[in-house]
Amino acid sequence: MYGLGLFKGLSITLKNLILVNRTNTIQYPDKKASILDLAKNEKKNLILYIIKNPLNTVKSFLGLISITQHAPQHPRFRGEEFSWYEERCTGCASCAKYCPLGIIKIVTDQTGKNYQEGQSYDIETFDIDIGRCMFCGLCVEACPYDALHMGSGFEESQYQRDNLVINVEKLKKTEKKPSHWFRPQLASKKDYSPFDDEVKWDSVGRHQKPTQKDLKNKWIRSDIE
């Protein structure tokens, strides 16, 4: 019968309209709060909450109250707040060399100090221009000492371009919440989540420092000198 396919299609759209639990929209960053959400937020019994906050109850029925809701993320998320560990960084600038866009700028101590093997360079500048960063995570992959990690935030918008440059002071100050990206040792930690917990420098990396030979093999193929 002509028009049957049309009605079949309309029945599907109607099914999707009526079955509310098939809604897939995530309200972000704010969500209209129902009375249940509010009671859950304050960790109180629903009836107790209604008795104590009659005004909020009326407001939530009218849809006037909203609560913050985070977009769902996964622990490997490559976010903006780079976690950098001063104690682990040797100033080798592997990250700067490996960055496809060349947006990491590292200046080490220029006084001509005589460094011994195993010592770290004194870092004067460590700038990451996240205004041009594409969050490919290759700098994290290149870091031989597990000093640089991706973060998990993504809400770092600024009014000025200059503010998008992360310098050493900012890197030192940021909360150290490294992402699982390219760090299997963090993924194997059972109770660690990059959205809540901070990690100290001594438990973030591999147990052993890579040797010179390891590094050479990582960077260039050993059969071609």
Binding site: Y2, G3, L4, G5, L6, K8, G9, I12, T13
Partner: peptide, 8 residues
């Protein structure tokens, strides 16, 4: 089924 049989 939404599209393939649809006459339009």
């Amino acid at each position: 089924s939404l599209i393939t049989g649809n006459e339009i």
